[in-house]
Design a protein around this nucleic acid. Structure first.
Lengths: 106, 106
DNA sequence: TATATAGAATACCAAAAGGTATTATATAGA
DNA sequence: TCTATATAATACCTTTTGGTATTCTATATA
């Protein structure tokens, strides 16, 4: 329950969401990602940094290029955090079920 | 694929995450939530507004009180968005499996 | 070696976000 | 009705964020 704030924050921006969708299609260098946006390389680079901080992408050096790919870790962290609340919905459903059963008895 | 940015943004803050955990324990008025933080009521109210915008909580009026409770909608939206990427991991696993199979043949 | 290309790093700016203080409104209760 | 309480609304301030421009470093390649 700590650094997942960084991960959720990374997803709280439309540009970064689009970058992830792009990378789901294929791994890319920053240059390739930039071609899909009307934004400077430096701007895109900042977004990539935040995605990396949130463990949503990982970078691998290859000569003078840097290959960016999706990183499952961030996604799993989020899923786990959200799953914590499943307990809540289950309780609600249980309570509803009990209520219905009680009424049926009458 | 639109307003979920608001939802993820809402979760990208530690105070708001804590509020959700509190509400998972029990429904609360803003006043009750404030008691758990070293922050003004106005500050907490702003956070609640963002959580509501992201459909993570819903508010029900009761006299002069407002009862806040978790809203499953926001959680489901996020789960669905994240689930979009499952395809990616599956592909990766498939590719890995093919590779292994190829090697076994030799 | 000289030069072009892929990327990193820094400084800077405007807008948005996190927070407080203050004022206003509606309802509960003496 | 008068007063206290639960909340809403607005103005304001400081920090962070999204973005550009500019400079610097490293690696391909003519």
């Amino acid at each position: 329950m700590q650094t997942n704030v960084t991960t959720f924050k990374a997803l709280g921006d439309p540009t970064r969401q689009k970058i992830l969708v792009l990378l789901a299609g294929q791994d890319m260098t920053i240059g390739e990602v930039v071609d899909h946006f009307d934004m400077t390389r430096a701007g895109v680079k900042k977004h990539m940094k935040l995605l990396e901080d949130g463990h949503l992408i990982s970078v691998k050096a290859d000569g003078r290029e840097r290959i960016n790919s999706l990183n499952r870790a961030g996604f799993q962290t989020m899923m786990q955090w959200i799953a914590y609340f499943d307990r809540f919905w289950d309780d609600k459903l249980d309570a509803l079920a009990s209520l219905v059963n009680e009424e049926e008895k009458e």
